[in-house]
Amino acid sequence: MIVADWRPARVLEVVPANTHAKILRISVPGWPGNAAGQHVDIRLTAEDGYQAVRSYSLASYGPDPVIELGVDEVPDGEVSPYLVEDAQPGDELEVKGPLGGYFVWRPGGEARVQLIAGGSGVVPLIAMARARADAGGPPFRLLYSVRTPDDALYRDEVMRLAEHGIDVTWVYTRGGPPGWTGPIGRIGPNALAAATWPASDAPDVYVCGPTGFVEAVANELVQLGHPAQKVRTERFGGA
């Protein structure tokens, strides 16, 4: 296997995702394509030579050499404030990847798929949902936990997933949309059980989000009877 090193890349488009996140489309000449759920390392080099590297999940999948990141700003971060506040079309940076073969969904399997996202953890799950929408396949469900509706990334796209037969459940931890009569707060075991495929369906489960969120949800899923090896996790630290 040939392992790519850093590739020069150029920002093509920057689109607001919400008040603290952006969608970035980045042209990566020579990009070999990626599976749904993989990530990249992004390297920025300052004028004085100082370099900073961070990992970002890809919302895009497939052979397209234009990759898509959904980046939430981490206050006091070194890379995300640039990507969210300052990045402009034409800016140059370096990309290494695609990375990771663990947190990946590939079309062709028969197992049901349960996606569970906290905050910007939805990004790699969007890639999986897109791959499922394009290729068809087994039943998918997405549980998406956000503080408020305005904190969601890809909110409109998530709303439209139902058109592709992907069942979506929203969890609001701080406040719901106008007219929301459901619960507000972190999802508990009963609500998690009600909103996800049961262990008896033997789903492949993908959980991505802040470390604390992923730990809590993964532990509850195992308590609900899901084998630990069927619960794939990706943690990005933070809140």
């Binding site: 296997m1 392992v3 090193d5 990530h39 990249v40 390392d41 590297v53 990992s55 290494k96 990847g97 990375l99 990771g100 663990y102 947190f103 470390t211 996790t233 990706e234 943690r235 990005f236 630290g237 933070g238």
Partner: peptide, 18 residues
Amino acid sequence: TRVDGNALAGMLESILKS
């Protein structure tokens, strides 16, 4: 920050070559 091994994929690929 406390993350998981996914975040090391890029660094370790440099040495392990896969």
